[in-house]
Amino acid sequence: MIDNALLELRDVGKVFGDTVALSPTTLNIKEGSFVAIVGPSGCGKSTLFNVIAGLLTPDSGDVVLADQRVTGATGHVGYMLQKDLLVPWRTVEDNITMAARLTRRVTANDRSEARRIATQYGLGDFLRHYPSALSGGMRQRVAFMRTLVTHQQLLLLDEPFGALDAQTRLEMQQWLLQVWRDTGRTVLFITHDVDESIFLSDRILVMSPRPGRIVADFENPLGRPRDISTLTDPDFNELKSRIMGLLHGKTQ
């Protein structure tokens, strides 16, 4: 076992009929790190997340979180999708406390934490709004706050900004980095956008389909904090061209 590994996958594999969605995969994720996962559509990224989250039971292997075997069990990660999945019948505040409401009684503490976090990250004026009154970027932020207050150390973000326009997306990326720095969580982040994967992460996993597997594992050499100038750094471009080469089938 590797020191500091918050999450370990040991030969985890998943097959749907004839499709090997995820061939046996071994992986260690360091506590506090930000790991991006890129790969073409259908290469098993979401399957990997669903296995980690416990929505799918793998056909082989084990998922180990903080030294506990959690294979096929739920209730131990934060999870967020491209669809914000806010419930229209709850206000912003009540959406943020949704995880608590779904598992136990919502306490005054839950509510004041929701208000504090919303205020801290720019949604303090919208606590009593219903989600229908929010823009796409604001909705994704609420969805992320809802994920944060689950107090899970591991956050699985499956293309969370995939549906946003380029401008909002860039704002959200910077916002996410700020929150990640403030809260010290461990993030697994799926994206189709190579720029986004490099801009955000400490480490990038590249996946490839048929069978779904991890084909490359890059350490990100870029320092922090990151800003717009990061996007034009020579290291950024070098890493980007290597990843693009892998994704588009060119050998290095």
Partner: peptide, 27 residues
Amino acid sequence: VDQDLMNLAKVYGAPRWRAFLQIEIPA
């Protein structure tokens, strides 16, 4: 009812009856 939403409830570890009352009924 959106199955992704029901899956999210599952990820949170929600018991079936709470997901029913908090999600399926209002939805």
